[in-house]
Amino acid sequence: MKRAALILPLLAPGCAGIQSANGRDAVQGALIGRLFDVFLGVAVVVYALVIVYLALALLRGRRHRRRESGLQGEPAPSLERPWRIGLILFASATALILFGLAIATWLTDRALAKAGAEAPLEVEVIGNQWWWEVRYQDPVASRIVRTANELHLPVGQTTRLTLKSNDVIHSMWIPNLSGKQDMIPGRESDLALHPTRTGTFRAQCAEFCGMQHANMALDVTVESPADFRRWYEAQLVPQPAPGGAAAAGYAIFQNRQCASCHAVGGTPASGQVAPDLTHVASRNTIAAGALPMSRENLARWVSDPQAVKPGNNMPKVPLSQSELGALVAYLETLK
């Protein structure tokens, strides 16, 4: 018991902060949260009643036995009638409670469907071992934004995420906003989100997907619609070949292995199998949350990706120290 009390405070951080399992920062999470509260409340009351009845039954039984053995007072009265009434009450209360919970579930389900029915923004999220590809859909092809490991959402409106996978089963989980949704190769699933509070949250792959499953995080930023628009327009800006200090790094990026898999908008690099790097330096993390974004960490990552995140698909590209410096200097300009 004492040990359990010691463990409990350790669980508390799971219900707060940027990755809170008790997340109610979106309409969807709040609806499910409210249903959870209803279930919890009813279950606590029923549990307490059962325990009280059990205690009473034990006490009564002991007294009853004493009477029957003739140790105490007059003979016991017949128990058949109160038992029958008790049973009827118990059965009808159980039926009523279950029926009530079923109705609460149904109402929540309807409310969820209603909340996700009209989505002005459509985003495709594709799971990969071990990173997230994010595509903002637009009828005009040149206005589609392709990014990786970051998801920006406008507050106060519904966004529908279409979830796909390129390799194994992943699961999308933004604990602060809503529940999990699996991403299954060859299928599409979707998730509607209507955030009600601005802030940055951390999403995590919630289905074991291989060695670096733990290093598959997604930075979620919920911001005002105006900020979101500004971010979106900034993402659309291409990054053509730079002059000056970054030119050497640009040449390395284009002529070495980088451009085979990565794309940078406005340059010949258009690989589609790895994260789009057009605005990589504006992201918070490197390699799906493996490292915080900084010059040192970029160098650490590029020089030997297999040391940072063993098993990922980025190979170690042989680069001299000066080539590495130039390449990192170029990557840093991709804001």
Partner: peptide, 15 residues
């Protein structure tokens, strides 16, 4: 035959 033949339908509006 692929495991899922039918096209995915969009979510229907409630009202």
């Amino acid at each position: 035959e692929p495991p899922v033949l039918d096209e995915r339908k969009p979510v229907r509006r409630v009202t």
